[in-house]
Design a protein around this nucleic acid. Structure first.
Lengths: 225, 225
DNA sequence: GTGATAAAGTCATCTGATGACTTGATGAAA
DNA sequence: TTTCATCAAGTCATCAGATGACTTTATCAC
């Protein structure tokens, strides 16, 4: 079964107004209809409109001036990349995460220290194999390992974006699919650490791809159904 | 004279609640007091609290469940990833961009259409080789090609993040190094398109890495000095 | 135990009202 | 004519109260 996506009226109003802004219904600097008009246009109460407008203000799209009105501040939000990425499909997010982890593992293989390798192995031990029980906890420990791999790349940009995708993916899974994504086995994980320890970026690349392949395959199957 | 900073009650409420979240007054997953309690705690109406909460929801800090309550979803600044990534070093940004472009090229090789390939070739012709003149224009045309490669992956998440890095990198180069980054030659670019056309992801991977290698090398030299 | 049911708690939304602020028009004074 | 105080209309900011929808928990019959 697939969880229903419930959306509130205010959220709907946010999207309705945002799409009008992006669609250039009002240009930058122009004034929107007042709250009462908007509420009748969208058939929601004024309070709901106010909630929607305040969200758009916080996202940089709108600006409100008390006593004057509500104005368009921007129609190309700077926080858009992350928003769009968040809205992208689960498969897209996985692919992006894979892209980052592959390269991070390569860099980690070139830049690792003995301490990092032993830390990775410790995280793997802590992670263990999933043998029933609290799956959320297991996923958390698994994620800790993967983030450590990326951290070993010593690339701050990749660390940040990877973390974002991990969060976003967790959200998406929770909201849509439940917890049906299979976790790859321990052997695949060990191969990653081995490759890093051996300073072999090619092997690290392959190991990461190998462990992600079944995940993506299952994802496709689930998304098809 | 300095303009007075006027702040609304709702904005104040947003900051008040956000600081409590970041200050770990409630941990992730914990439930906040209900709207009525919050409104009396902050001495504002329930409507104001709702506007504040909705902003924090849109920023990823909170989550509301009708009939149940309002819960902390994250206590780290979720808009931070891109800021941090932007502040990361030029080399880090290049590496992240490489990670995305490699994977995008792989996907493009699997998903390309004849139209996309001819579009890529057309962009390469338009790009030409740099033979002096307006370097900014040339960089722009070069970027158009690379973005088209990523677009050919049909992965929206990667397209967005890649675009962000491209912009960010352009800014950084302009602000720090001038225009000393060497542009790879035409031959390397053609190899990418060829690999995509041949539906050969491995070759696409290698081609992208090959064309980026001299760029990163030069970057290192410049950053060393 | 198990499952249906009832009750309490909470968010979602609406309605109506008042206050604060901005803007433009008006008109008197310089 | 120009300046400037005043006023009125328009709009956002905020409040109060009420109802509906949904979740969670306790209860009770089986």
């Amino acid at each position: 079964m697939r969880a229903l996506i419930k959306t509130t009226l205010a959220d709907t109003a946010v999207e309705a107004i945002r799409s009008e802004i992006i669609g250039r219904r009002w240009l930058v600097g122009e004034k929107l209809p007042n709250e009462t008009s908007l509420s009748s246009m969208l058939s929601v109460s004024r309070g709901t409109i106010r909630e929607a407008v305040r969200v758009l203000v916080s996202q940089g799209y709108l600006e409100t001036r008390q006593g004057s009105g509500t104005y368009v501040r921007s129609n190309t939000d700077v926080s858009l990349p992350l928003d769009m990425a968040r809205r992208a499909g689960l498969r897209d997010q996985f692919e992006a995460r894979l892209a980052l982890e592959v390269e991070a593992a390569r860099l980690a293989a070139l830049r690792h220290s003995p301490e990092v390798v032993s830390q990775l192995r410790a995280l793997l031990v802590a992670r263990g194999n999933y043998t029933g029980g609290d799956k959320a906890k297991f996923i958390e420990r698994d994620l800790a390992f993967h983030e450590a791999v990326v951290a070993a790349s010593q690339n701050r940009a990749m660390i940040e974006i990877y973390e974002f995708f991990s969060l976003s993916i967790a959200e998406t899974i929770e909201a849509t699919l439940g917890e049906d994504i299979p976790e790859p086995d321990m052997q695949a994980h060990i191969a990653i650490v081995d490759a890093i320890e051996a300073s072999n970026p090619e092997a690290a690349d392959i190991a990461v791809r190998r462990f992600m392949a079944p995940v993506v395959a299952t994802l496709d199957r689930l998304l098809m159904s």
